[in-house]
Design a protein around this nucleic acid. Structure first.
Lengths: 162, 162
DNA sequence: TCAGTCGGTTTGAATTTCCAACTAACTTGT
DNA sequence: ACAAGTTAGTTGGAAATTCAAACCGACTGA
C-alpha cells in the first residue's frame, strides 16, 4: 500500500476534490471570470457565460454561501444586487490564469477566441514557483501531505473576510 | 461598450471557456489528479475519484481525443491499457496546484482531507509570476487580449506530442 | 401610457449522471 | 482442473441536473 492508494472503496478526500465541489460545478468558474473582468450584474454575467438564468442563480448562491463572492446592494427600490469577489474569490486568479495559459497553448483550433494578457502588456506566460524553495512547480512536484481539518487554524491573514 | 462587454447574445469565446470544455467536465480534473499521483489504471482511478465507471470511460476518451492523456497498452491478451499524461496533460500541474492551494486555504471544514506539499517538503505555497516582467499575478492583472486561432501557430516546443 | 430593463422564478422537456449488474478474457490459488 | 478473482469496460433503467423559454414584479425613460 503506497501513499497514493486509498482504502478499497473510499474516494480520495483531498483539497483538490474539496475545491472542485465549489468551483467545479458548471458555470462557476466562468461566472468568476466575469467578476474578475469587472462584470458584476446578473444579466450580463448570464449573457457573457451562456449559463441559463436559473442555473446561474443557483451557482451564485452556492459561491456566496462559501464566501467566494458577495452580493452588494446597489438599488433600494427595487432591491438590486451586484456580485463581487471576496478576498477568497480574488485568490482564484491563479487558477483562472493557469487555465487560460494552458488552454491558449493547447486548445488552439479554428475558432477564434479571446486570449488573455498580463497587465504589463505581455502575453500570458505565468510561472508557478514554490514560495519556500523557489523551484518551479512541475509534474511530480505535487505530493500528498498529511490530513488536515478545522483543528488546524486558517492563518489570520487568510481568514474569511466579506 | 467597454472591452469586457460581449455582443448582445453571444457568450464570451475565450481560452478559459475553451479549456473548461475539456477540463471542466465532472471528474476530468480528478482523473488527471490520479495520473499525476502515479495512478494509471481504470479501476483504481474509478475508486480514487468516485466517478462511476461509464462516465469515467467517457471522460478518459474525451481527454484522450484532446491529447491530454494517452492509452498505453500493457497487456496483449487480453488487451489492457494504462492512462498516462501527455506533455499537454503534465502541464495542467499549475491548475491542480493552484486549486489545491486555494482550497487548503479557504475550504477548511470539519472533515479531514489530504493536503498537498511540494517535493521540497514544504507546505503548498505556490506563487504565480509573469515570466515577462516578474511581477506576481493578482486580481486585475488578468486582461483580455486579441482574438487568436489556428492561424497563429503553436510554438514548436509546445506542439502536441503523444 | 407603453416599451424596456433588471433580477430573478417557474415549467416541462432534454440531457447527463448514477448505480448495480453483466461481460469477456484472462490469472491465481487449491 | 476448477473456482474465484482481476481488469476494463458495457448495458439498462432510474434519478438528478440542466436547458430554454415564458413569466413576474418593480421599476425607468420617452
Amino acid at each position: 500500500m503506497t501513499p497514493t492508494d486509498t482504502a478499497r472503496d473510499a474516494p480520495r478526500a483531498c483539497f483538490i476534490a474539496a475545491g472542485l465541489e465549489v468551483l467545479g460545478e458548471r458555470w462557476a468558474l466562468l461566472a468568476l471570470r466575469e467578476m474578475s473582468l469587472g462584470v458584476h450584474r446578473f444579466d450580463q454575467i448570464a449573457r457573457n457565460t451562456g449559463a441559463s438564468r436559473d442555473i446561474l442563480t443557483s451557482r451564485l448562491r452556492t459561491l456566496e454561501s462559501h464566501g467566494v463572492i458577495e452580493r452588494v446592494q446597489y438599488s433600494e427600490h427595487p432591491p438590486r444586487h451586484e456580485y463581487h469577489l471576496t478576498i477568497s474569490g480574488a485568490e482564484i486568479a491563479p487558477i483562472l490564469i493557469s487555465l487560460a495559459a494552458w488552454s491558449s497553448t493547447w486548445m488552439r483550433d479554428e475558432t477564434p477566441r479571446a486570449s488573455y494578457r498580463h497587465s504589463c502588456g505581455a502575453d500570458l506566460k505565468p510561472v508557478l514557483t514554490c514560495a519556500e524553495c523557489g523551484e518551479e512547480f512541475r509534474l511530480g512536484s505535487l505530493m500528498l501531505g498529511p490530513l488536515v481539518s478545522t483543528a488546524d487554524a486558517i492563518p489570520v491573514d487568510k481568514q474569511r473576510q466579506i
